[in-house]
Every structure is written in structure tokens, then in C-alpha cells.
Simulated assay, not measured.
Amino acid sequence: MNTTNLIATIALLACATGVFSHEKSPHHAPKAAPMKEQKEWGIAGDVKDVRRTIAIRMTDDMRFTPSAITVHEGETVRLRAQNKGKVLHEIVIGTQAELAQHAEMMKKFPAMEHDEPYMAHVRAGGQGDVVWHFNRPGSFDFACLIPGHYQAGMTGTITVLPRKP
């Protein structure tokens, strides 16, 4: 096991231990809003800033439609993932390297919970939203990381065009 996998495994075990011990606690604090963390591909957006919603179909042929999206730097977009299939799918935004690493972790821990603002788990027939502020130009990716889906080609690209001067 390499160092990265060992650290990820320890982190997951620590989180799981914390969750189980919290469930036994008689006092449950309200769930805090997730902290916004700057990522290479942007930062969680505020719904009030959304000016455009992009519907993305997910199907059991392991494809997204559309599979290529273009946005502008500074734009906050709602990605509305619509699962038109009969199995669970998800959409996760990231870099190709991070998505590949996460896909490998999903193979080892397929029931892993997802609650990051740049991902949405979507049950069959349902929909889920990712509200994202694209504050950095570049080419980024999105994928379904359910085991086997990423490997079957369930991926797409997001091109963030630079802000016009």
C-alpha cells in the first residue's frame, strides 16, 4: 500500500469512528454548512448567484449528455444532474488526476458517503444539483465514480474560458 492510500485509509477510518461515536452521543448538534474550499477548478457557489442551469443527463450506457460544457471565468452555474437510468450515478467535478485517484478509492470503498459541494449522488430517476463558482480558467473534468462507471468512460469536460479584460 503506498503512502497516499495509507493516509486515505486512516482518514476514512478516523471519520467513520467519529461518525459512530457521534451517533451514540445524546446531544446532536445541527450539521454545520460545509466550509468553502478553493479547488483548482473553482469553489462552491451560492444559489443566489446562479445565472444559468445546465442540465446533464446520466444514463446506464455510462454516458453524460452533454459530455462537454463551456462556462466563463467568474460564472456561478448550477449543474443539474438528471439520472435517466435504473442504477445509481453521480457527478463529481475535478482534475483528471484527482478523479482517477478517487475512482480507485471508490473501488475499495464503494459505499463511501459523498457530501462535498463539487459532487452529487443521484438515485435512479432522480436529480441532484452542484452549484459551482468557476473562478479559474482552464480545462477540468467531471465523472461518475461509481465503481465501473468511470472505467466504462462515464466522463466529461468543462472548459472555463478566461474572463474578458
Rank of each mutant, 00 (worst) to 15 (best):
T76P: 09
R78C: 14
G74N: 14
R63H: 10
L79G: 03
T65S: 14
P66I: 06
D61Y: 11
G85N: 03
A68S: 11
M62Q: 14
F64W: 14
I54W: 03
I56E: 06
E75Q: 07
M62E: 07
L79C: 08
I56T: 11
E73T: 07
R78L: 06
K84L: 15
P66E: 04
R80T: 09
I54E: 05
H72G: 10
A55E: 12
T53Q: 09
S67F: 08
M62K: 11
A81P: 02
V71Y: 07
I56Q: 02
N83H: 13
E75G: 00
I69A: 02
T65D: 12
Q82T: 13
K84I: 04
D61T: 08
T59N: 07
A55I: 12
T53M: 05
A55G: 06
E73R: 00
M58D: 03
R57D: 14
H72P: 00
G85M: 06
G85C: 04
G85F: 01
V71T: 11
T59V: 05
T59D: 08
T65I: 08
G85D: 07
V71R: 00
M58W: 11
N83K: 11
I69P: 02
A68V: 15
V87H: 14
T70G: 00
R63M: 11
A81K: 03
N83R: 14
R52L: 10
S67E: 03
T65L: 12
K86I: 15
Q82Y: 13
V71I: 11
K86E: 15
N83D: 09
M58C: 10
I69H: 07
D60P: 05
T70V: 14
R78P: 02
N83M: 08
R52F: 06
L79F: 15
R57Y: 11
V87S: 11
A81N: 08
V71S: 01
R80H: 10
I54S: 06
F64Y: 12
R63I: 10
R63Q: 14
G74H: 13
M62S: 04
A68G: 02
R57N: 03
T65Q: 05
N83S: 14
H72Q: 07
D61P: 06
I56C: 07
S67A: 12
V87T: 14
D60L: 04
A81S: 09
